[in-house]
């Protein structure tokens, strides 16, 4: 049911009933080692190229979930490489229908929303949702060759290798998606591709405000506000913006998936990012730890919608953020 301008309440909440997460070597040394299901030993994992490894990550995860839930027909996903090629190549041998989005790191949020909308129809079916990212493949696509010696500023973020896929159903045990707020494209005039946090924080703020107004709630109604990949910089900006707007927010209430995945001493600068960042965190630590308790959590996936070519032609980074409320 539509409430307010861009928010929806789901009467038949979608339940996350199963999930599988996979991650790379750098994430293995991070905070979530115990909660991630599977690791790959290096960024190739016996494949010839980074892109093929990306495809393999997706294929493996999807196949594992398909073997457990063979009746699933739709997959809501998307990745960062041109036209979501890794996803589509990875799905060649399955019967899944891919519904792919191009919202960069916000893809997981939009996928969860779209899946929840589909289940809203009340069908007794399951759908798959998830995103994956691969550090080296994305780096090659968006920045410079991996071996190129270039100094990244402290505000830059590191793309996460890995991600997670989950199965949503109308019935079953698990955390439920109860509300969703869709984002708009925001251009706040930031143009530094090495500081995604500052560019994405306004979009996150915009979607949050819209949700608070539409649903007549405040941050105090939620236990946590989990952001996708704002990084340390973006998270601090978001906190200041919320306080400036007059909302009572607790600093501990804000959790950033990108910051949580890695340990402080790891060489990731401002934190993790990428399409798989939020899905990896939410489906490992979130499901196995946070949602064991009874919680009401805001999950916001933020994404930057630029491409290297577009950034050179028009130096603007438009951003978007999609929000879901998960209750357990």
């Amino acid at each position: 049911m539509n409430i307010g301008t861009r928010s929806f309440q789901f009467h038949t909440p979608a339940v996350i009933i199963d999930q599988h997460t996979i991650a790379g070597p750098l994430e293995k040394q991070g905070n979530l080692t115990a909660e991630i299901d599977q690791f790959i030993p290096d960024l190739y994992d016996d494949e010839k190229t980074y892109e093929l490894c990306y495809t393999k990550l997706i294929r493996q995860t999807v196949n594992i979930l398909m073997s457990r839930h063979p009746l699933t027909t739709y997959l809501f996903t998307g990745d960062l490489i041109n036209q979501s090629t890794p996803t589509h190549y990875g799905l060649m041998e399955t019967l899944l229908v891919p519904v792919t989005f191009d919202h960069a790191c916000a893809t997981f949020g939009l996928s969860l929303q779209s899946a929840a909308f589909m289940l809203q129809q009340g069908q007794k079916q399951t759908v798959m949702v998830g995103t994956m990212s691969h550090f080296a493949a994305v780096e090659k696509q968006f920045r410079f060759p991996n071996e190129y010696g270039q100094q990244k500023p402290p505000s830059s973020q590191t793309t996460v290798t890995g991600g997670g896929f989950c199965i949503l159903a109308t019935e079953g045990e698990g955390p439920k998606i109860t509300y969703a707020t869709l984002g708009r494209v925001i251009n706040a005039g930031f143009k530094d591709p090495y500081n995604m946090g500052e560019a994405m924080a306004p979009a996150c703020f915009d979607t949050l405000l819209c949700h608070f107004q539409d649903c007549q709630v405040t941050p105090a109604d939620y236990d946590y506000i989990i952001t996708g990949d704002l990084g340390a910089v973006g998270q601090a900006i978001l906190f200041d913006l919320l306080v400036h707007e007059g909302y009572q927010v607790n600093r501990e209430q804000l959790i950033d998936a990108g910051c949580e995945i890695f340990k402080d001493h790891q060489p990731v600068m401002s934190g993790g990012s990428g399409a798989g960042c939020l899905s990896l965190f939410l489906l490992s630590h979130g499901i196995k730890h946070l949602f064991k308790q009874s919680l009401k959590v805001l999950v916001i996936a933020t994404g930057a919608l630029h491409s290297p070519v577009a950034l050179l032609q028009t130096p603007i980074i438009p951003t978007i953020a999609h929000l879901v409320v998960i209750e357990s």
Binding site: Q151, P153, P154, S155, I186, A188, G189, F190, N195, E198, A201, P202, D206, A232, V233, A236, I237, D240, L241, H244, S270
Partner: peptide
């Protein structure tokens, strides 16, 4: 949306590059 506010807040939190060390 208030872009000016975004820029002032972002400026405050933008981690400075370690110029001397670099």
């Amino acid at each position: 949306m208030n872009n000016k506010l975004f820029h002032t807040v972002a400026e405050k939190h933008n981690p400075p590059r370690p110029l001397l060390k670099n």
